[in-house]
Every structure is written in C-alpha cells, then in structure tokens.
C-alpha cells in the first residue's frame, strides 16, 4: 500500500497545480472577454451586424411541455428570418423563476432571448422570486389563451347564467379545479369570484390535465381552463363549455359565447400568455432585429398551423403592445393575489 502512495502525492499535486492554472487562466480570460465587449459596443454605434452567431432561447420549463413545444416551433421559423440558428435551452426550476432569473441576468447583447409566460407577472407577487417584467425589454407576444367555464355535459347547468346563479346561491359549495395554488387558472377563477360576487371551493391539482380528469370523473364541478385543454372532451360530448372568459369567442370552440354576452358580467381577462423578451439593457437596434425576426416567424403559415393544431390562441403583439399587456397583468395580479390570502 505504501508503494503506491507517491502516486497519490502526484495526483494531489496535479490538482493543486490545475487549480492554480485555472485561477491564472481565469484572470487572463476575463480581460480578453472585456476586449470583446468594447469591440461589440464600437460596432453597434454604426449599423448593427447582429446576429453574428447563434442565439440562445431560454425556456423556463421542461422539454416536452406546452411552452417548450411552442418555443421550438417558433424558433424553427425565426431562424429563417434571423439568418442564424436558435438553440432552445431549457432552464427549469422554481415554477419558471430559475429561467426568468437566468434570462434577466444574461448579457444584454441579444444573444440570449427568453420565452416568458404569465408566471413572470404572478411569481413575484407570490413572493417566490424578485424578478419582474421590468427587468426585460419585450420583443414580441405570440400567444394568449382565455379562460372558460367548463362543466360536465350531464351537469344541471345549461348556461353560464344558471351556473353563476347557482354559485351565488350556494357560496363555497361549487368545486372549481385549478392547476395549482397561485397558478393562472386559480387566479382566473378568483378574478371571476371577485367580479361576479361568488365564492368557490378551489381544488388545486398538479396541472390542468388532472383537473380536467377529475371533472370527467365527476369529482369536481367545473374547471376554468383554456379551450385547448377541454376541446377533445367538449367535441366528444362529455364536457360542456358554458362561456369563454374573454372579449371575443375562441376559434377552438366555435359557437360558445363570451361570458359578457351570456351574463353581462365584466371581469378581468386573465389567462396564460407567452412572449419573447431580452434583458432590459439590450441595445435598441438589436431589439429591432429580433422583433422583426420573431414577428415574421409568428406570422409563418407553419407556425400558425402548429398553434391551431394545438388549439393555442394566436395573439401577436410587438414590443410596445406586449409591454402594455405585461403591465396590466402585473397590476391585476398585484391586487388579486394578496386578496386571495396566498401570500404569507
């Protein structure tokens, strides 16, 4: 055993040596990347030649989810207009907070773009992350899905009015499933509660699909989830959507009127949206290049077909429009969330 111990010394010496090397190397490299910064700053004073290399698109959710799939479909089209490849990078964790933070603190050079979702305007009100929409500069919004009021096909409520009347007469009895405490569907249902003067029994599930399953099984009374999430069952005659909670009907469920048309109740139209942003210090000319590319991508027939196949609502807005949406959403959630008693 003693015979081999010199090798261990060599090994440990090697480790120490490597550490020393990396420390020196680290120093050297930082200064050189500083040089790059100056160079790119100089070039951006003139007409931008962005992008010179491939762009990363951060997706704060796992590969395979709806946001991931949308990001990949969008990236595929945007590559054509950007003239560079776009690599989708899933940065999961903290219900989106890890990816948002990563996106907000990235180098503001336009090479890191983040796909953000409605959670950007809810998580910080829930005290779950310090990151807000204000740390980003919007590129484009591409999607919005409205809430619905969906019940079982054999339920006694044939119209939205009957549902509202029953819920009003029986406060706390109607079980409304949602996709998790503080999730968008919880908040949409809460907004309806507030504006229509109702009280639901909110049942949290781990996502929208289990909530719909529970509704099919008759374990809860209604779900507020998007048209796409109930379309298959509505078409098959197992579920009935009473109203779309939006200012216009949904293409995914033709024939279903809006809540206001049905009942006259006005409520805040809260639903999940998705869009693309960059860190707030990104130069304007770079933002312009990205906005052009992503807006054109969202308008491509292939992307539209993807969205329609998935029943996702296409709502395309440029930076200014997207900024306004985030501002309004953030304000509504700022009022709604504390009132729900979710913040402790």
């Amino acid at each position: 055993m003693e015979r081999g111990s010199w090798r261990k010394w060599v090994a440990s010496a090697a480790v120490v040596g490597m550490l020393a090397l990396t420390a020196c190397g680290g120093g050297g490299n930082t200064s050189s990347s500083g040089g790059d910064d100056k160079a790119s700053a100089a070039s951006s004073e003139t007409k931008t030649d962005f992008p010179k290399k491939s762009v990363n698109l951060i997706v704060p959710y796992a590969a395979g989810g709806g946001t991931d799939a949308t990001a990949r479909a969008l990236a595929k089209e945007a590559e054509k207009h950007l003239g560079q490849s776009i690599a989708v990078v899933n940065k999961t964790g903290g219900g989106g907070a890890v990816g948002f933070t990563e996106g907000a603190t990235a180098k503001p050079d336009g090479y890191t773009v983040t796909m953000v979702t409605v959670e950007l305007t809810t998580l910080h009100h829930l005290n779950l992350t310090p990151v807000t929409y204000k740390e980003f500069k919007p590129i484009a919004q591409i999607n919005f899905d409205p809430a619905t009021i969906t019940v079982r096909a054999d339920s006694p409520w044939k119209t939205a009015q009957e549902f509202i009347d029953y819920a009003k007469a029986h406060p706390g009895e109607v079980k409304v499933g949602n996709s998790g405490p503080g999730s968008i569907w919880h908040l949409s249902a809460a907004a309806l509660e507030k504006d229509a003067g109702l009280k639901f029994n909110h049942v949290p599930f781990d996502g929208a699909a289990p909530a719909v399953t529970a509704l099919l099984g008759g374990h809860i009374d209604a779900v507020p989830v998007s048209p796409a999430e109930v379309k298959a069952q509505v078409d098959a005659g197992k579920l009935r959507t009473l109203a779309i909670v939006d200012d216009k009907p949904s293409d995914a469920l033709p024939g279903v009127k809006t809540l206001e048309e049905e009942t006259g109740i006005k409520t805040t139209y809260l639903g999940p949206w998705r869009g693309v942003v960059v860190p707030k210090d990104t130069p304007d000319d770079v933002v312009q290049v990205l906005t052009d590319a992503f807006m054109k991508a969202a308008d491509e027939p292939a992307f539209k077909e993807y969205m329609n196949n998935n029943g996702l609502g296409i709502v395309i807005k440029d930076g200014a429009g997207f900024e306004k949406l985030m501002e309004e959403a953030d304000q509504s959630f700022g009022e709604l969330i504390p009132a729900l008693g979710l913040v402790k």
């Binding site: 090798r7 261990k8 060599v10 090994a11 090697a14 480790v15 490597m18 990396t22």
Partner: peptide
C-alpha cells in the same frame, strides 16, 4: 469554472493516477 469538456479529461487523468 472551465466547463465540462475541459475539466473531464483533467479529472479522469487524476483519477487514473490515483
């Protein structure tokens, strides 16, 4: 610090020596 592609060969050499 250095990323996976550089650190891995380094540490594997150290492991083998050890």
């Amino acid at each position: 610090l250095l990323g996976f592609n550089i650190s891995t060969p380094i540490i594997l050499v150290i492991f083998l020596a050890f």
